[in-house]
Design a binder for these strands. Sequence first.
DNA 1: GATGAATGAGCATTCATTCAT
DNA 2: CATGAATGAATGCTCATTCAT
Lengths: 195, 195, 195, 195
Amino acid sequence: MKKNKPKYRQIIDAAVIAIAENGYHQAQVSKIAKQAGVADGTIYLYFKNKEDILISLFQDKMGYFVEKFEEKIAGKETAAEKLLVLVETHFNMLSEDRHLAIVTQLELRQSNKELRHKINEGLKGVLSLVEKILIEGREAGEFSPDLDTRLARQMIFGTMDETVTTWVMNDQKYDLPSLAGPIHKMLLHGCATRK
Amino acid sequence: MKKNKPKYRQIIDAAVIAIAENGYHQAQVSKIAKQAGVADGTIYLYFKNKEDILISLFQDKMGYFVEKFEEKIAGKETAAEKLLVLVETHFNMLSEDRHLAIVTQLELRQSNKELRHKINEGLKGVLSLVEKILIEGREAGEFSPDLDTRLARQMIFGTMDETVTTWVMNDQKYDLPSLAGPIHKMLLHGCATRK
Amino acid sequence: MKKNKPKYRQIIDAAVIAIAENGYHQAQVSKIAKQAGVADGTIYLYFKNKEDILISLFQDKMGYFVEKFEEKIAGKETAAEKLLVLVETHFNMLSEDRHLAIVTQLELRQSNKELRHKINEGLKGVLSLVEKILIEGREAGEFSPDLDTRLARQMIFGTMDETVTTWVMNDQKYDLPSLAGPIHKMLLHGCATRK
Amino acid sequence: MKKNKPKYRQIIDAAVIAIAENGYHQAQVSKIAKQAGVADGTIYLYFKNKEDILISLFQDKMGYFVEKFEEKIAGKETAAEKLLVLVETHFNMLSEDRHLAIVTQLELRQSNKELRHKINEGLKGVLSLVEKILIEGREAGEFSPDLDTRLARQMIFGTMDETVTTWVMNDQKYDLPSLAGPIHKMLLHGCATRK
DNA sequence: GATGAATGAGCATTCATTCAT
DNA sequence: CATGAATGAATGCTCATTCAT
């Protein structure tokens, strides 16, 4: 009857839309189910509970991001180039899915601490990925030898996140991907810290 | 037992403690009232509703921050120096109040979009303050002439925010203020972007 | 506005009626609240949860029974007389409150095992009370010297319970208290077992 | 693995085990199906609905009881002897099947009134059987000429039931069949009521 | 006959806010 | 000013039953 894609994905996609359009607390399970075109109970055949939908949603999108990222990073040599790919991939992905951007930047943050901790677990993979790039760059002489990679990582993530959030709170009315270049340049100089 | 300070402040302080110790969603009005040593109904003599407590809390602390900031910025000449004061003041303030740090970095973000928009309104003052510094610095030749001050501002706020949040999520177990120097150096080089 | 009796009792009385008229599983909290003339939430100012209403209900009625029983037993000398008072008090109490009879004999038994265990705790007091009478009677020579008081107690309770349940399942259409005499006589002979 | 016995009996046996081990409300149809080694839907090829399983279960066991009872009663002359066979058969049957004892004494009672009425229908046969014995005994002079056979029947059933239930609630940790003798003696004297 | 994925009705409980005292 | 008892709207999840295969 419905689309041929498996219900699991059908429900995740519905959750993104329902949350983006109604807000986190107003996206009741029944709304997600209706959006997905399934019965309320069907949700629970694929997810343990409502929280599990959100965790799965996040992991799913995160997996997609990592996939895209590794696809595009292939062949890039320098840390600088790799950082550009990171920013571009991030901005592109959220720019291409308005609903997802709203969900990750605004709505999912309203979830309780427990859920946010689980989400952070999912982020760990990307964090270490970035830190690896930073260490490479430092050892290759691209970055300052006394660069604190942990702090640098926080700068990179904080900057990207703030940039996207500001864009979303301004109703996504300007072009986000075109900011990747300037942002990247700033971050690069930040890492190139020298006395 | 009841301190002489006006109930208004008594309630705000109680809210910070109640939220930090119980979490945003578990800090019911009745808990805040008990912590403040007043009856539930009394809250509504000083605040329009629960959301109003949080907004007031934020504005109150923000005002305190601006006050501190302007106190310390007096006599500073360069934009670089002013930025250092900004980071230091921010880190010091949150480092000195464990409860407040938890509330601003973790708990208050669970509030709904509407509240977060109002909180952002309160931030505008500081934002423009920072942007003014950036413009000064650009015109004084400290920063790159083609620096996008809006993006730079997002980098500065994003970096500071991510740094503090990471510190809080690590249970505040290392010294935050000592990170102000390295962070400032990175941000400065980021702004000093040149071709 | 409402009756002057404390809300606690008001709710218990409402629960008896609501359960008797709607059945255990159809007596939703909202129905009990409506019957009691209070808001749903008010229930939870006086009871921990729905189960707590039922436990309290049972203890309340049990307390009333014990009170009545001790009132009427005063001055009775023989165990036989005391047993008669027991049966009469039990039959009278349930005969006087149609709703209560339905609740104790039919509806409350549908509660889960946990609740039934708690109810049994409440019964312990009465059980030992009866066993004391049986021991007295045995020592006074009224009953067989080799009477197993535990079995006798089970006979007494089982017989009374079955009698009342049968009466309720027959829509209480005959007179229950008038059965106390014959039942008592049978039980007495049962206890008077001799070789 | 799948025994050759018809699925009908397979499912009833599974229901007894599932209910005894999980409790009435936790013995979902899916659990019974899994225990029986069939699909959920298969249940509905043999039973109208869940309630029908329970009624059938009860009737099945009741039929087995009557069969056993008539087997053993053959050749017994006096009402007293026949009553002994009744108590012994009842106690033996439940003593031999721990699961069945739990189900009949504790779990099945949580069913709703309607189901319990239907179960009572099934009991009618045994009830009248007992009443016949009582009338025989009265006419044969074994029992008091003014014995109320309806009340006596309630005493007999109530006592047996209470005895078994107490035994189950004490985790079946003492020997039930050995109580048949003493119980029978008490009941007999109860019926032998004389002025 | 057998399957098992899908259905969707139903309900205890919390808590921000009010208002009579 | 202050109180705190009372309010009542709002929602995630279970499970008996169906029916297309």
